[in-house]
C-alpha cells in the first residue's frame, strides 16, 4: 500500500479510534471484547483501505455493528447477562432516583440480546435516526422500531423488577 494511504490509515485510527472504542464498549460492556471488536473492524478496513478510504468511517462502523450482532439468532452464542445477574441497586440511600435508575439501566442494557443492544447504542449513543440505524444493520426501519420498542419494554421490566423505587418510598 502506498505510504500516503498508510499515513491516512494511521491518521484515521488516531482520530476515530476512541470513538469506535466507545461504541464497542457500549455494546459489549467489556474492555477486552471492545478492543478485539474494534481491532477486527479496523483490520478489515485496512485490508481494503485503497477501496474504502473515502468512506472509512461508515465502513468501519457498519462492520463493528454487524460483527457484534452476527451471532444473532444462533442459540447458545449470546453473551448477555441473565436477568438473575442484574444486581440489586446498592446504596439507594446515597443516590437519587435518577442515578440509581441509570445504574440499573446500565446493567439491564447488558442483559439484552446483541441486536437490541446495537439498536439502542445507535439510537441513544450515536443519535442515529431509525433509517440510518436500519441501513447500518441491514434491516428494515420497521425492524429497528420493533427491536427498539421491545428493548425499552424489557428494560422497563428489568429496572422495575430490581428497583421498585416507588414501592420503597
Amino acid at each position: 500500500m502506498k505510504q500516503s494511504l498508510e499515513d491516512e490509515f494511521t491518521a484515521f485510527v488516531a482520530e476515530r479510534g476512541q470513538s469506535l472504542l466507545r461504541i464497542a464498549h457500549a455494546m459489549t460492556g467489556d474492555r477486552e471484547a471492545a478492543q478485539d471488536l474494534v481491532q477486527g473492524a479496523l483490520a478489515k478496513a485496512y485490508s481494503r483501505w485503497p477501496r474504502i478510504h473515502g468512506d472509512a468511517e461508515a465502513y468501519v462502523r457498519k462492520i463493528l455493528y454487524n460483527d457484534r450482532i452476527s451471532a444473532w439468532r444462533r442459540p447458545g452464542s449470546r453473551n448477555e447477562v441473565s436477568m438473575a445477574d442484574v444486581p440489586e441497586r446498592a446504596g439507594q440511600d446515597r443516590h437519587d432516583d435518577d442515578v440509581a435508575e441509570r445504574l440499573a439501566l446500565r446493567e439491564a442494557l447488558l442483559s439484552l440480546p446483541a441486536r437490541q443492544r446495537a439498536v439502542l447504542v445507535m439510537r441513544y449513543l450515536e443519535d442515529r435516526s431509525v433509517e440510518e440505524t436500519a441501513e447500518a444493520l441491514g434491516c428494515r426501519p420497521g425492524t429497528v422500531a420493533s427491536q427498539s420498542s421491545r428493548a425499552l419494554a424489557k428494560l422497563r421490566e428489568l429496572v422495575g423488577r430490581v428497583t421498585p423505587l416507588e414501592a420503597s418510598r
Binding site: 488516531a14 479510534g17 476512541q18 472504542l21 464497542a24 464498549h25 446500565r106 447504542v121 441513544y124 428494560l155
Partner: peptide, 27 residues
C-alpha cells in the same frame, strides 16, 4: 436515563493503545 447509561458505558472504553499497529498486522 437510558441515554445517560449508554454514555456512561461508552465512557468506560479503554484508551486506543496500538490500535493501528494491531489492525495492520491482522489486516
Amino acid at each position: 436515563n437510558l441515554r445517560d447509561a449508554v454514555h456512561d458505558l461508552a465512557g468506560e472504553a479503554p484508551p486506543p493503545l496500538d490500535l493501528a499497529a494491531a489492525a495492520r498486522t491482522r489486516g
